[in-house]
Simulated assay, not measured.
Amino acid sequence: MVSFIYLHGFASSPQSRKAQVLGDRFAALNVPLHRPDLNADDFSHLTLSRQIAQVEALLPPAPEPTILIGSSFGGLTAAWLGDRHPQIEKLVLLAPAFGFLDHWLPKLGEAALQHWRDTGYYSVYHYRDATQIPLHYGFITDNQRYDDTILQRPVPTLILHGHHDEVIPFNASQAYAATRPWVTLIPLDSDHTLSNVDAEIWAAIQSFCFEPAAETARE
Rank of each mutant, 00 (worst) to 15 (best):
D129R: 11
D129H: 11
A130E: 02
A130Q: 03
A130C: 00
A130I: 00
A130W: 01
A130Y: 01
T131K: 04
T131Q: 02
T131Y: 00
T131E: 00
T131A: 09
Q132P: 12
Q132E: 15
I133W: 00
I133L: 01
I133H: 00
I133C: 00
P134T: 00
P134N: 02
P134G: 01
P134I: 00
P134D: 01
P134V: 00
L135A: 14
L135S: 03
L135H: 04
H136C: 08
H136F: 03
H136M: 03
Y137K: 11
Y137E: 15
Y137F: 14
Y137H: 15
Y137L: 01
G138S: 11
G138R: 03
G138Y: 15
G138Q: 12
F139A: 07
F139T: 03
F139D: 15
F139R: 12
I140P: 15
I140V: 03
T141V: 03
T141Y: 08
T141Q: 05
D142A: 04
N143Q: 07
N143W: 06
N143R: 05
N143A: 09
N143I: 03
N143P: 14
N143C: 14
N143L: 06
Q144L: 09
Q144H: 11
Q144D: 12
Q144F: 05
R145D: 07
R145C: 04
R145N: 13
Y146F: 10
Y146L: 04
Y146R: 14
Y146G: 07
D147M: 06
D147Q: 09
D147G: 08
D148V: 08
D148S: 06
D148L: 08
D148Q: 14
D148G: 13
D148K: 07
T149I: 15
T149K: 10
T149P: 12
T149E: 15
I150G: 08
I150D: 14
I150P: 14
L151H: 13
L151M: 13
L151D: 10
Q152D: 06
Q152S: 08
R153W: 07
R153L: 04
R153Y: 02
P154H: 04
P154S: 11
V155W: 10
V155N: 03
V155T: 04
P156I: 12
P156R: 07
T157P: 02
L158W: 11
L158H: 09
L158F: 14
L158M: 13
L158C: 13
L158K: 12
L158A: 09
I159K: 04
I159S: 14
I159M: 15
I159D: 08
I159F: 13
I159Q: 12
I159Y: 06
L160M: 02
L160K: 05
L160I: 09
L160Q: 09
L160F: 02
L160Y: 07
L160D: 01
L160W: 11
G162I: 02
G162Q: 13
